[in-house]
Design a protein around this nucleic acid. Sequence first.
DNA 1: AATGAAAATGTGACCGATCACAAATCACTG
DNA 2: CAGTGATTTGTGATCGGTCACATTTTCATT
Lengths: 359, 359
Amino acid sequence: MVWGGEKLASESRAKSPTIRDVAAVAGVSHQTVSRVINKSPNVKPALRAKVQAAIDQLGYVPNIAARRMGGNRSYLILAINDRARTLDNWGVGRGNDWVDQMLFGGMMECEKNGFRLIFDLVDTENPAAGKQLAGALSSLRPDGVILTPPHSENQDLADLLVANGTPFARIGSSNKKDGINILMDDMAAAQTATQCLLDLKHRKIAFISGSSDYLASTSRLEGYRNAMAKARAPIQSDWEQPGDFSFESGARAAETLFSSSDRPTAIIASNDEMAFAVLHQADKFGISVPDDLSVISFDDTPGVRFSVPPLTAIRQPIAAMARRAASELIDQKIDVNEGAEITLPFEFIIRRTTGPAPE
Amino acid sequence: MVWGGEKLASESRAKSPTIRDVAAVAGVSHQTVSRVINKSPNVKPALRAKVQAAIDQLGYVPNIAARRMGGNRSYLILAINDRARTLDNWGVGRGNDWVDQMLFGGMMECEKNGFRLIFDLVDTENPAAGKQLAGALSSLRPDGVILTPPHSENQDLADLLVANGTPFARIGSSNKKDGINILMDDMAAAQTATQCLLDLKHRKIAFISGSSDYLASTSRLEGYRNAMAKARAPIQSDWEQPGDFSFESGARAAETLFSSSDRPTAIIASNDEMAFAVLHQADKFGISVPDDLSVISFDDTPGVRFSVPPLTAIRQPIAAMARRAASELIDQKIDVNEGAEITLPFEFIIRRTTGPAPE
DNA sequence: AATGAAAATGTGACCGATCACAAATCACTG
DNA sequence: CAGTGATTTGTGATCGGTCACATTTTCATT
């Protein structure tokens, strides 16, 4: 038998059952099936059971594209992440855990509600960021958008979303005017960190801040100042070192602090990268951690576990924030045009860079 | 003026232009617009330009759901990742960089072709994994599926995909019978690592292998053996230590090796986690790295940069693999029923855990 | 100039859900 | 037990693309 030398066109995909298949099996109209799927209250229990049985029997799962076409929901949540933050260039990971934690938290919540989470990597610097977002909105018509740092600080994107009428959530920032703003209590976190050091009898506590374009940076600095003031600990202006979240800025700050005549016995760094730099410089200056110097960092990215010694850190609850963001966008209980703030608890993880003040 | 106490129903979403809007502006039929979008060759340049102008003017982007409905493509690629690998529980990142590297590599390729990459986190252990995949197929009807470890070793999932007629790619594994199998040349990589140590005059080189359920594990072991045999280096059976990719197994293996009467001067660990364990144990045994002991690891996950000293490692080109997987699934040039293997180059990154053999 | 095939363009049906609305059923009242 | 309104079920249009096919235009060839 000859079928011809031509390769067969790829055999067609297995046909999934449609809502009408289910309707036929259950002996009801397609609309009734739709009602069961969407948990409409006005279906008699007996019928509902019969429909559900047909659904289970056929392994029916509604087609998300068709749902989008017919209705006004897409069952999609779009998460905007920063491309640069994810990887600095082809395949060289920076160990950023935003993406996987977002994925985990956001997806769990989406899955529970029949939604899907879709990521879009956008360059902050790219002036076409707005166009990229507009394209994604037009193509996907997501029911909600999650902005992560640094995009959560970009009001242009927020304005675009407001104009488009797409609900959105910011993570780690807030303009108090629109969107659902999911925050960690950075001020309280910094206060906690500072208090921890004060309790260990430290008095000379320095603080390396992050880029001032981030709300979190200023909140953290404020928390540090508050705790110091409350404890009547001496505040010296050169113990407040400016940083920009980079290793280099952390190293510079540490060098300045260590070269000072009145050297601090503890340093709080506004992120892990700068804390690593502090450890690095301490080693260079022959300063032993935590005996001569205590260090606390913010963020608690995965690499932290491998620092020597492992860093005591404030952990940002990224997964929980993403989960909450997805949850609120799906529920649609919050009027996005008014701006709501939701604060989630942070975690304080004591590892091995903190100890009692020397001497 | 009173608008009533009732909150306004959320104002409707901004309407995106449709293909017919573009057609009206360009003065052509909707089908011609479709042809331009899909780069059909049979459109006269003049018309094409006119249509393109209308598209640009309106900022038209085709709706992905409608494309799926009308045609037989969905413009979606589904990536299946392991849930456990991503995070071990709520919010505690393990520093796995599969997800972000996959996202980066896969998404760049998808974006270029008007596709979207969607992730699904599936529990390997969960017996409902198949059902979850079937549901995702039915709901999304992706044009292709990418399986990452450990799912790439799961033939049940592959069988399901074959039965469903959905093209798929495996990353880091191959059964040589179906799917597009994207591999790193693990054997050559292990050979390279071993050769590097041999070139440094090491002779007593130990190898800690990974779980034998992974193809990569056996390939790596084989590469080590080949290199050793070729160099006529002595092979001692207790220098081949079994591991399972966990820190604990690495620590056990290292302890055994260090306690041996004939202690090796170099160790190759099949992944970073076990290499960390080796460094940890070396410290405990008072063995200095790289002076007394050289260590090479596989994978080069982000945390590696923070080990002390930074690990010399073989890097898995995850982003490039994901990119290639997406590219092949989009192109549909490969007959998935026959099984193709694509090997991508690895990178060997020399850091500070490798040095000349002692004495 | 006539012819016919190939290239370019247009027309209307269709995918699989939801929506708006119509019809049937039910429950309660007088 | 008819009459009313609320609940339950059904019908057909619709979303925005692509597909199959019909039609028109182009152009080489006779």
